[in-house]
Amino acid sequence: MNTRTVGWFEITATDPDRCRKFYDGLFGWEFTEAEAGYWTVAGPGSSSMGALRSGDRDELTIFVVCEVAGTLSHLESLGARVIASPSRTPAGDLQAVVEDVRSNRLGLSSSGTPVAWFEIGTDDPGATRKFYENAFGWTSERDEAAEGVEYYSFLAPGAEQPIGGIFAGAGDYAIPGLLVSDVEDVLDRCERSGGSRVMGPVSDGNGLTIGQFTDPSGNRWSSFAVPSGG
């Protein structure tokens, strides 16, 4: 599979039981144990979209679906640093992890299903846009609907709709975006479940509503809702 877009995420948790309880309560996610300390994650009635791994740190990593070995060498030539060499997960996928030119963790995976959205935060939009265009062929164009901020939409080769975005001046991060029906409801329930509201909800010029939150371990996510009839 060589979709070259974000199609997987992995949560590493020092307290996986608390993590599972939080996401089950917030989204109804289902966790299937592949082996001790590793679960695949699926939404209600959907296929696997990510994984939860027990570990000695708390972090969230997005994964680009691609041919791992060749892409890894290419990213190194662009200045990325390998922090996890290719290996098989308990679910059987070949994966590796690098840091991009802004030290954001970025995974590579041999399989996955495109996520609803992803966002790269950066304090150097020029370097970030150049890196991802050279890395995966993603072009970026200014999103004029994002009023009052510097935001760019990523377009994959041949794609008609954006697959993700770059938020300039918001710090450096790389996070998944979740399509939800009500952003304020998600943020409110997140706070009541031990997470935190980072921003929002805010609406752009097209009526898209956006918010960000962190889980109880500090992992950051974006969530968005499309306008009625959108």
Rank of each mutant, 00 (worst) to 15 (best):
V82C: 10
S223V: 15
L60T: 02
S46A: 14
L187M: 06
N206H: 10
G177A: 12
D58V: 05
R192L: 13
D93E: 11
C19H: 00
P216W: 12
G229K: 03
R129M: 12
G169P: 07
I11R: 01
D172L: 01
S223I: 15
P227T: 09
S153I: 04
D17P: 00
P216K: 11
P16F: 10
R4V: 02
G205L: 10
D56P: 04
A42S: 15
A156K: 02
T139K: 13
S48R: 11
P16T: 13
L60D: 04
L78D: 00
P201I: 04
L78K: 05
D185G: 08
A80P: 07
P44Y: 02
F9D: 00
R192H: 12
A170S: 15
F63T: 01
D100P: 07
T12A: 13
T214E: 11
V6C: 05
W29M: 10
V65Y: 00
R129P: 00
A36Y: 11
A225E: 08
E76I: 07
A80E: 03
G7L: 01
G229I: 09
A225R: 09
G200F: 08
T122M: 09
G43R: 11
W221I: 04
A156V: 03
D188S: 15
M1N: 14
L94K: 06
D172F: 07
A36E: 15
C19S: 13
D182P: 04
Y173C: 05
D185E: 14
T5E: 12
F224V: 09
S109N: 13
S217V: 07
A174H: 05
V64L: 02
R129D: 00
P114Q: 08
R102Q: 14
A170P: 00
A69Q: 07
P16S: 12
R53F: 05
E160V: 08
E99V: 08
S153D: 13
R18K: 11
G25P: 03
F27V: 04
D24T: 12
S111K: 15
S153V: 07
P157V: 07
G207F: 07
D100I: 13
